[in-house]
Simulated assay, not measured.
Amino acid sequence: MASITLVVRPRGRPIKGLPESITVNPDESAAQIFSEIADASKFSIHRLRVTKGSDGTPISNNCDITVQQTGLRNKSAIDVKDLGPQISWRTVFVIEYLGPLLFHPIFYYGRSLIYGTSAPASDLQTLTMIMCVLHFAKREFETLFIHRFSAATMPARNIFKNSAHYWFLSGLNLAYWSYSPSSPAAQTPKSPLLTYLGIALFAIGELSNFYTHLILKNLRRPGSQDRGIPRGLGFGLVTCPNYMFEIMAWVGVTLVNRSLSTVLFFVIGGAQMYAWAKKKERRYRKEFPETYKKKRSVMIPGLL
């Protein structure tokens, strides 16, 4: 098929070097549009937002969609917007989880300086520190080697907002109260049963959460944005069993350290996960109307 010419129009802040038009092959992937504009403007493709000039519909930087399938024809106009400096989602998650990984050892090993106490940490405080470090070390491992991201980047300015939840709630706030001499975890429990239950829930939750992430990883080919219906551990019960097992693990931590700061963290985090799970359930129903088995509970069976 003969090549077509697309009229390029700037939208928002000026883009130096933005071409007035580009020539593309209708049979090639839509990613070709981004590549042509990026080569001319010297901008990263991830910094560009391209929409159809006719109706403002976003054009996806997707290798599985052709230029012709986007509805663009010869002399069609496209609008190009500079999204500003970008940062990869993988880097975002690494930075987010780094906060708790730093704060928990700092407050645990620095108790004499921070709290002015010479008393050693209790067994429950030691368990809390181990569990929190294991959890976020697992998160870092999954970020680097397991997760595949549908979007490559996000605006760099959002890194502070995204990191606040982990650095302050599960990092500074949770660590400060967990290792304090006045913490419930500093006392010897009358019965170890809750501690054993907490350890069991944490271990089951973490291992199951990791396994569901492997299932989700295998749904998507590397470098693609294709989607599928996940099946296996927990997916027959709720939309997002990875969130269910995440909550289970944090209930386990709460039973060990008995701190309201832990409850605050996973309740706020749980509310956000519930919103994400509801959104994913709607997407599954829309994308797979004939084959997807609808779920009444998206995160916790019978409750949420």
Results as ranks from 00 to 15, higher is better:
residue 158 N to T: 13
residue 119 A to T: 10
residue 167 W to G: 14
residue 116 G to S: 10
residue 207 L to M: 07
residue 170 S to N: 09
residue 102 L to K: 02
residue 148 R to Y: 05
residue 197 L to A: 15
residue 210 F to V: 12
residue 193 L to E: 04
residue 162 N to A: 00
residue 216 L to E: 12
residue 204 I to F: 08
residue 124 L to D: 07
residue 186 A to N: 14
residue 125 Q to V: 09
residue 126 T to F: 12
residue 154 M to G: 05
residue 180 S to M: 03
residue 153 T to Y: 12
residue 116 G to N: 13
residue 120 P to C: 01
residue 120 P to F: 04
residue 137 A to P: 00
residue 181 P to G: 02
residue 155 P to F: 01
residue 158 N to V: 06
residue 198 G to D: 02
residue 184 P to K: 03
residue 174 L to Y: 05
residue 109 Y to T: 07
residue 141 F to Y: 15
residue 144 L to Q: 07
residue 225 Q to D: 04
residue 155 P to R: 03
residue 128 T to D: 07
residue 165 H to N: 08
residue 106 I to Q: 04
residue 208 S to Y: 08
residue 132 C to V: 10
residue 195 T to D: 10
residue 139 R to D: 06
residue 156 A to M: 14
residue 123 D to L: 15
residue 139 R to L: 11
residue 213 H to L: 08
residue 204 I to R: 03
residue 188 T to V: 15
residue 176 Y to C: 00
residue 145 F to S: 01
residue 174 L to M: 15
residue 106 I to P: 03
residue 113 L to R: 11
residue 133 V to A: 06
residue 199 I to C: 14
residue 157 R to N: 08
residue 174 L to I: 04
residue 170 S to M: 09
residue 134 L to I: 13
residue 102 L to Y: 07
residue 150 S to E: 06
residue 159 I to D: 04
residue 144 L to E: 01
residue 137 A to Q: 03
residue 137 A to R: 01
residue 137 A to V: 11
residue 178 S to V: 08
residue 165 H to K: 09
residue 143 T to L: 00
residue 193 L to P: 00
residue 194 L to I: 00
residue 111 R to A: 15
residue 189 P to G: 09
residue 166 Y to I: 03
residue 207 L to G: 00
residue 131 M to Q: 12
residue 178 S to H: 04
residue 143 T to E: 01
residue 143 T to A: 02
residue 190 K to M: 10
residue 219 L to Y: 03
residue 202 F to D: 09
residue 168 F to P: 00
residue 215 I to C: 07
residue 220 R to K: 13
residue 112 S to F: 12
residue 145 F to Y: 13
residue 138 K to R: 15
residue 221 R to N: 11
residue 179 Y to G: 04
residue 216 L to Y: 10
residue 147 H to L: 07
residue 150 S to Y: 09
residue 117 T to M: 07
residue 140 E to I: 15
residue 211 Y to R: 13
residue 109 Y to I: 05
residue 146 I to L: 08
residue 176 Y to D: 01
residue 143 T to C: 03
residue 150 S to V: 13
residue 160 F to Y: 10
residue 113 L to S: 15
residue 226 D to R: 06
residue 155 P to G: 02
residue 123 D to T: 15
residue 134 L to V: 12
residue 170 S to R: 08
residue 133 V to E: 06
residue 179 Y to R: 02
residue 145 F to A: 05
residue 217 K to Q: 14
residue 148 R to H: 09
residue 228 G to D: 15
residue 101 L to N: 05
residue 167 W to T: 09
residue 192 P to K: 07
residue 119 A to R: 07
residue 161 K to H: 00
residue 120 P to G: 05
residue 163 S to H: 02
residue 137 A to Y: 04
residue 197 L to R: 01
